[in-house]
Structure formats: C-alpha cells, structure tokens
Design a protein around this nucleic acid. Sequence first.
RNA 1: GGGGCUGUAGUAGAGUCGGUUACAACGCCGGCCUGUCACGCCGGAGGUCGCGGGUUCAAGUCCCGUCAGCCCCGCCA
Length: 596
Amino acid sequence: MQNDKLGNWKRTHRCGEPTAVLIGQEICVMGWVQRRRDHGGLIFIDLRDREGIVQLALDPDRDVTSHRKAEQVRTEYVIAARGRVSARPQGTVNPRMKTGEVEIEVTELRILNRSETPPFMIDEYTEVAENIRLKYRYLDLRRPALQRNLMMRHLVARTVRTYLDGQGFIEVETPVLTKSTPEGARDYLVPSRVNVGNFYALPQSPQLFKQLLMVSGFDRYFQIVKCFRDEDLRADRQPEFTQIDCEMSFVNRDDVIATMEGLIAAIFKEAIGLEVQLPMERLTYAEALRRFGVDNPDLRFALELVDLTALVADSQFKVFAEVAAAGGLVKAINVKGGADFSRKDLDGFTDFVKIYGAKGLAWVKVTEEGWQSPIAKFFTAAELIRLNQELSSEVGDLLLFVADTAGITNEALGRLRGHLGQRLGLASKDDYRFVWVTDFPLLEWDAEAKRHVAVHHPFTSPLEEDIPLLDSDPGKARAQAYDLVLNGSEVGGGSVRIHDPSVQSRLFELLGIGEEEAQLKFGFLLDALSYGAPPHGGIAFGLDRLMMILTAADSIRDVIAFPKTQKATCMLSDAPNAVDEKQLQELGIRLRKKQE
RNA sequence: GGGGCUGUAGUAGAGUCGGUUACAACGCCGGCCUGUCACGCCGGAGGUCGCGGGUUCAAGUCCCGUCAGCCCCGCCA
C-alpha cells in the first residue's frame, strides 16, 4: 500500500501544544500513533511527538475518506492530520493530559509512513529487558523517560554555554586524535595509516591541551567534550563519556570553586528549579576519611564513623588489640534503632564489608540488659561505658565495628555507611547535598609498581606550604586538588596546575618518570611552561553523572542516547567488529592468535 | 582476572516434588461497537523454555559447560 506524500503540508503545532486557547483554530499536526481506539463509527487516535500527545477524533459524518484511512492506521504509523481544535464534549475531558480539554476534529489525514509492530510498546508502563532496549535503541528513545532525559541534557548543555560565556569563557575544540601518555587509564588506540606502526590515542581528557591554551593566553576556556577510557564499565561509567571541561588563568583554588559553584547553581536552577545554597560546604580529604571513611561522602545523613582504636588497644579482644598494635584502625558506626535487624541482615552486612577486604564485621545490639553481642564478653565494665559514650549508644541501637588496616577499615565501613543510608531510607532523592573535598594527597604509593603515582594527575600543584615535603617526605604532600561531591557521587574534580617547569620536572622525577621519558612524553608541555605560563587551574565535571542525579536515573545508560553494554559493545550497531584483512594490511597490523 | 543475579510466545511474567497437550496478562490478527483515552466485547494465531552436553523410562524443572544482559570487586592519573 502506498504512503501519502507530505506535499506542501506544514506542521503548525506540536502534539503537546493544543490547549483550550486554540479552540476554533485550524491546525496541522504530525507524529507517531500512540494508540487507536476504534468505536466502529468514531475513531480516536492518540498522536505523539516529543512534546506530548493529542487526541485526533475521526468522525465518518465529517469526512468519510479520512475515517476510512484511520481504519488502516496502526501503532507507530507516522501520520499527519489537519482539522479544527475543538473543546471535548462535557464529561469527556481527560484531566491527566495536558491537551485533555481539547481534541482535533480531523478533516484530512495523511499516512506518511507505516511501521512494523514494534518489539515493545512505546509507553511509560511497559518494562523491557535492557538488551532488547539497547538493540532497538531508536525505539526506546521514543519513550517518554528517555525523551525527557535527553531534552534535559540539552537544557543543561545550553545552560553551561550561557553561564560560562557570561563569565568570559571561550569554547575551544581540542584534538580527538592525540598522543598516548603514561599514567592514568588505558588508552583507546587508533593506528595511523600514514605513519605505519604508530598510534594515536583518544583523549582521557583534554588536560594538556587546555593547559596549553592557558599558555596561549585564552585566559578562560571550556568545552563540552567526549573523553575515552578503556577500563571496565559500571552503572555510572561508560568507556566514552562527556566532561564539562574548564580552565582559568590567574586564579587560585577558591577562585575556581567560586566560579564553578555558580555554574552548578545555574544548572540545577534551570534543570529542576532547585535553588542551591552558596557557598557550598567543604571538607578536607583527611576529615572526609575520618568521619565518613570515603572521599566522596553522602552528606544527606549522619551515621558517622567513630575511631575507637586507642580505646580498644589494651582490651582483651585480641582482634581489636592486634589491629591497634599493628597501626591499623578500629572504627564503628551506630545505626540508631537498628537492634531489630535479623541475624540474616547482619550476615548480609558482613558479606558486604568483605567485598572491600574486611575480614569481618563485629556487631552489638544495645538492649536493656546491656550488650547483646558475640564480642561483649571481651570488654570490662569500664571499657563498655567508654565505648557506649564514644558511640552515644542507647537501647535499641545497633553498633557495627570493623578492625583492619586504615585503608580497609575506612573503605569497608564507609561503604557500609552508604549502603545503610540507602537501605534505611535516610537518603532522599529530593535532597541535594554538595560538598567540596579539598587537600587531597598529591601522591600515593603503588605497591605493585613500587613507585609513587599521582592521586589526581601529574600536573597538579602541591599546596605551597607542602613544597618542601617533596624532598623530605613526598607521600605527605597535599595537592591543590578538589572534588565536587553530590550525594555520595563524585561529579567533578580539578586542581591548580603546576606552571613552573622546574616543579613539573621534579614531579615527574617523583613519579619515576625519567628526564628522557618526560621529554619524550611531555616535552611539549615542559617547553610550553618555559615560555611564560600563567598560574592556572581548572576542573572537569562529569556531565553524565550530573544528568543521572538530575534525572534520578539508576544507570548512566539512561542519560546517553547510544550507550554501550557492560562489555563495551554497542547492541545497535554491533561495534566493535572484525575488519577486512585489507584494512589491517594498510595499517601494518597483523592479529595474533589468542593465547590459551 | 574474580564474585553474584537473570534468561520460558513479540513484551514482561507463572510453571509445585522431574510426569498428560507449557499457563493467564499485555501486544498482534479478524469481527462487532459513535465519546473513548493503558476503551470495551467475541474469536484466533503465536513457543528451538538462551545454546550445547549429561543423568533419567521421562528434563522448562536436576547436573556440567557455554553465551548474552545486568550489579559488584579489581581497574577507572
């Protein structure tokens, strides 16, 4: 059957638009058939586009041709309709629809294209398995949830451009085909045909280029830019993701933070109408770890970690005493009113902390009769009093202890804290708690590689007062680095950079990057820094993670139009795929047999 | 590299202790219906129980392997 031609028809309104103010007007709408309700005589069609749904009414008494055509119409057909907007008869108004007061009395209908029956319904009710959704992504994207998310993403991108433009930032594009550098994530490599045997790398971030732009005098730069990291995926991690990347000259940490708080406030105002209180809270890295165990704490609830190491160091409970003697940490959280958790729940919490390397979880139920706990018998009455004091414990509370190395205790108990906050409903999705985490360590020791690695990146400036530590005790040096954390999620991070080539060389040295290698890999940066580099610093926000929070999405895939699966494949296009031998030959590449 | 969850008509599910022809819903197809709106009523079609192997008289169900999707650890300057 032949489709109708569009001809010279012009769409006058989107489907979500017609309301009572248009009553009496002749309009033309185009879209997809959400549903057809055929009453034998009268036919109703719900017509959908990205702005909403409007009801078409086809009456054989008004126009036989269009009514007959409407009988052939099926779900997801693309049609165009002309007619008069009219008030619905009394008692037939649909208050749940924006357009529910009116309908279009169709006088002419055109079927612009037919559609196969879709594999799933294009509505907000039907739940569909992720693999089916991804295979038919173009259909999933028709559904209201993803339409909403991507339209909000556009709104956010627009707000970013408007705000930063207003602050004197200039949008500059940087190369996608760039140079592989040591440090950091695995690079995606792109072979060069013109230079057989050599490879480009896709950028993990435009870090070096934006610093060069500061040397070039652009003063304030930004870019909404794709970044690539060849690492394993998570619910909030994709191999290609988008950063709001910014860099500023002649600024210190507080200047960057103040400017960026304005950006975040503008985004939240525009996207969800939220007034963000400024200035935002701040925590040092050390305090975040001490109180919450992690560097990305969710501040929507308390449940803080209490350090009991000194208190239990001399106790009869060997597990605690030995950890204390070995320089580890014994910490606990008090789950208020948690004493009614079942044994099964407690076993579940124990399994949970084991994921993060803890050997176990000690629990105490505080009852009228005192501690109900496998470890109660190890403590003297005096110790129990002090423990209860430190933990502010009351009858009905549940105390949970982890004893291990500092790293494991903090991580395990901190993650358990987050888990419990979610489970106990302490973390409301309507609550937005921003916090800047500052004063990160500059370096951390990589036991496997037996060298220091940069916590942030190798271009991060130490705190000025900590520069002497680079020679005496580099592991203690703190960085002028900062993360923005929102509800337990790291949404952005940045630093003031090194603008002095001698300090930069010293850093490479500490990272075990020899002078020759530094010249080879980063020579262009060192050269640039030697030609009058201004003091500069910047930040990058993860746009995808911001969008997850703004849309309350559980998965990063719900804020990206065409995301990849956990195995980094695209179910729609079937990428990545094998290529012709001829293509490989041109690139000088031969594939090795898989090692068994 | 490792741990876990899931896989049954187009979709999302039920399927008991291994036992007759694998259920009902939504969708789809046909018919009826002039005020419905996740319309209604009647009828119908639709299945490689992810795939392979094994145990058994008999496997959707039990065992082994494998594939895919998802969640997590490692990894992610």
